[in-house]
Amino acid sequence: MIRRFGESPEPGRRYTRRVGAYALLPRGSDLLLTSQYDPDPDLQLPGGGIDPGESPVAALHREVYEETGWLIAAPRRIGAFRRFAYMPEYNLWAEKICLIYRARPVRRIGPPTEPDHAALWMPAHSAAQLLGNAGDRHFAARHLARITAR
């Protein structure tokens, strides 16, 4: 059973299952995040949907690059969660299955290629409070607890 964060599904509403891969990208005590400005401002772990025939790790590399402009290395899956949400960019009610990885940000190639996205570095303690959904905040807080326990 995958832990659910956020709102419960609305009775009678149809949800389309969307599986995506998302990354915690630490450098020192900071995390590399993406800020999506349209349709509404939202601070997120970089990542997104897995295309048909694409592996989760290939999707992770592609999505992180599109949303941050960074290349990553050594992704390792650390967990998963699900949430029910409306995705205005697709006009879709979705059951999002979020596969969470930890990876190493290697090199910035350029700005994000995804429109209305900006990459930013943020202290992990701030990210654990400010990320736009409870599942992302949970994994940022777990990361923070891991690095402060060292």
Rank of each mutant, 00 (worst) to 15 (best):
A118C: 09
D42Y: 14
L130Q: 12
Y90C: 00
G132R: 05
R77T: 01
M1C: 11
E63R: 13
P11I: 08
A145T: 04
I2S: 08
G12V: 12
L60D: 00
L71Q: 12
E114C: 08
H125R: 13
R27T: 04
A59E: 01
A134F: 02
A119Y: 01
G49T: 13
P105A: 11
R108F: 13
P52G: 01
E67D: 02
P9V: 02
G6D: 05
D38C: 06
G6Y: 03
L45M: 07
P41A: 08
M1H: 14
G79C: 13
P88Y: 03
E66A: 11
T16F: 15
L32D: 10
L25T: 10
Y86D: 09
A119H: 05
D136W: 15
P46T: 05
I109V: 15
V19I: 14
Y15L: 06
A141W: 12
R102H: 07
A128L: 05
A140G: 10
S29Y: 11
A94E: 14
P26F: 08
A124N: 03
H117E: 06
E114S: 13
C98L: 14
P11Y: 04
I78S: 00
A124E: 06
G6T: 07
D30L: 12
A94H: 05
A149P: 01
P123D: 01
E89L: 15
A85G: 09
E54Y: 09
R62Q: 08
P39T: 01
H138W: 15
T113P: 04
A124I: 07
P111T: 07
L31H: 08
P123V: 02
I72Q: 05
S29W: 12
E66I: 03
Y101N: 05
A128K: 07
W70S: 02
M122F: 11
S35N: 01
A145Y: 03
Y86N: 03
G6V: 11
Y86C: 06
D51Q: 15
Y22E: 03
R142A: 13
R83W: 00
G53N: 07
F5I: 09
S35C: 11
R17E: 15
W121A: 06
P26I: 10
L92V: 06
H125A: 12
I50Q: 02
D30E: 14
V19S: 06
A149Y: 03
E67K: 15
A134G: 09
D116T: 06
P41R: 07
R137C: 10
L120Y: 04
T113I: 09
R76L: 13
A58P: 08
A127E: 13
L120P: 11
H138K: 10
L43M: 10
V57G: 00
G79R: 01
A58H: 12
